[in-house]
Amino acid sequence: MTTVSALVPAHNEEQGLADTLESLLAQTRAFDEIIVVDDCSTDRTREVALAHGVTVFTAECNQGSKARAQNYGLPYVWTDLVLPVDADTLLAPDYLELILEPFENPNVAIAAGCVMTRFEDRPTERGRSIEYLFGFHFQRPIQNAANSPVVCSGCCSAFRTDELRAFGGFPERTIVEDMDYTWSKQEEGRRAVYVGDAVAWAADPSTMTYLRKQVWRWMSGFFQNVRIHTARLARHKPVLLLWILIAIWDIVSAPLWYAMPFLAIFVFHASVLWTLTWWLGMEILLLTPPLVYAAHRRRIPYRRVFRNLPYLYVNKVVNTYYAWKALVVELILVPLRLTRGLAVYEKGRA
Rank of each mutant, 00 (worst) to 15 (best):
T89L: 04
C155Y: 07
D80L: 09
Q27W: 03
D32G: 06
A145W: 13
L309V: 08
S206V: 03
L96V: 13
F167D: 02
G221Y: 05
R235Y: 04
C114V: 12
D94C: 04
A202W: 06
P238T: 07
E120Q: 12
V8I: 14
C40V: 05
S23K: 01
V8A: 00
A294Y: 02
L233K: 08
L285S: 13
R337Y: 09
P255E: 10
M116K: 03
E131T: 09
Q27Y: 04
D94M: 00
R212K: 14
D162V: 14
F119Y: 12
R303K: 13
P75A: 08
P238M: 05
I34T: 05
A112H: 10
D32V: 10
A295E: 05
P9Q: 03
N147H: 15
P335M: 06
Y321R: 12
P171K: 07
V267L: 11
R190N: 06
D80P: 01
A198I: 02
N107R: 13
A202Q: 10
R235P: 04
W201D: 08
H236G: 02
A295W: 00
Q143W: 12
M260V: 09
Y95M: 05
E125K: 00
F159T: 03
K213Q: 15
K347F: 12
Q139T: 15
L81V: 11
I246W: 08
D39A: 02
K66T: 09
R126V: 04
C40Q: 12
Y95Q: 02
W274S: 13
E346S: 13
W183T: 06
S129G: 11
V82F: 01
C152P: 01
A270H: 10
W216C: 02
T89Q: 03
R44C: 06
A111E: 11
W249R: 13
L287P: 01
I130N: 06
M282P: 03
F167V: 11
N107Q: 14
Q27C: 08
R29V: 15
N62F: 12
V176Q: 01
V329D: 00
S271I: 12
I175V: 15
G168A: 02
V215G: 02
R297V: 11
P289C: 05
D43V: 09
L211E: 08
W274G: 12
G348Q: 06
I246D: 09
A87K: 00
V314T: 12
Q63W: 09
Y345M: 07
F136P: 02
H11F: 13
Y132E: 15
A231N: 13
R190F: 02
N319T: 14
A109W: 07
S129F: 05
N147R: 15
T230M: 10
V199L: 11
A49R: 02
L273D: 13
P171R: 08
P289R: 06
E33H: 12
R29S: 15
K213P: 00
P290W: 08
G348P: 00
L25N: 06
D178G: 00
A112W: 05
F306S: 00
A264I: 08
S271M: 03
A10M: 08
A6P: 00
D94R: 05
Q139G: 12
E47I: 12
G154S: 01
R299L: 09
A69W: 04
A231T: 14
P255A: 10
K213E: 15
